[in-house]
Design a protein around this nucleic acid. Structure first.
Lengths: 109, 109
DNA sequence: CGACAATACTAGCATCGCTAGGCTTGGGAC
DNA sequence: GTCCCAAGCCTAGCGATGCTAGTATTGTCG
């Protein structure tokens, strides 16, 4: 049923951030910070959180509540499933195929 | 104000196809064929057409009806505006930043 | 204890992705 | 010419995604 074929841009970014951060650091606020620092674009925590939950619904990510090692209130940590990783890789392959032959900076002026 | 900040995956693909095809070949059916041959993924002509029209509404693409050089009924030819090219380049930069440090095939297994 | 800060979470709307069609028109058969 | 067909344009409308504006919960510190 919920066989998704495409990832939205934010969904894709958010999944990539969970990979970059790893299992011990990928909760909402850290993902927001990672995305802003790597891409330079602001993103609302709720947008990230909702994207993650909807990805979980469609089987592309999974999560668990867990108190951080340093102590403090429990957070929800996310990571992509195998299906999520496959879809990310396919999406990347499609973009690279379309970009190939186009100079990286051709649209800048 | 229609100041778009992000491109959907299909929107982005479709804009890239218009660039690849150039001004004399970028009408709906040709774009569909280009996308399928380059990305290997099927896409409906109407999905492409609607994406292009919505991009035009938000100032990221422009179009005109024109009979093809070979003769035949007029077609609508599309191309990205400067704003569209800028947004494509920014979106690409964000993806590459997030991908950097991750092997291209890490999600394949 | 009470206030504060961090974080999870929800509601709801605008935009995007897609399917299932209908409409128009050039060109060929006759 | 006129009838037909295929190419290709275009629309309606629904589910998925992106985002804003919040509320709820719970550690920690004074």
């Amino acid at each position: 049923m919920g066989e998704k074929q495409t990832l939205g841009e934010v969904e894709h970014h958010v999944l990539l951030a969970t990979v970059r951060l790893g299992a011990t650091a990928s909760y909402t606020a850290a993902i927001v910070e990672e995305l802003e620092s790597v891409t330079g674009r602001e993103v609302a925590p709720a947008a990230v959180y909702i994207a993650l939950r909807r990805l979980e619904e469609s089987g592309l990510a999974e999560s668990e509540m867990r108190p951080p090692a340093e102590g403090g209130r429990p957070r929800r940590y996310f990571r992509p499933t195998a299906a999520g990783r496959t879809l990310m890789a396919e999406s990347r392959r499609r973009f690279e195929a379309l970009w190939s032959g186009l100079e990286p900076g051709w649209g800048d002026g």
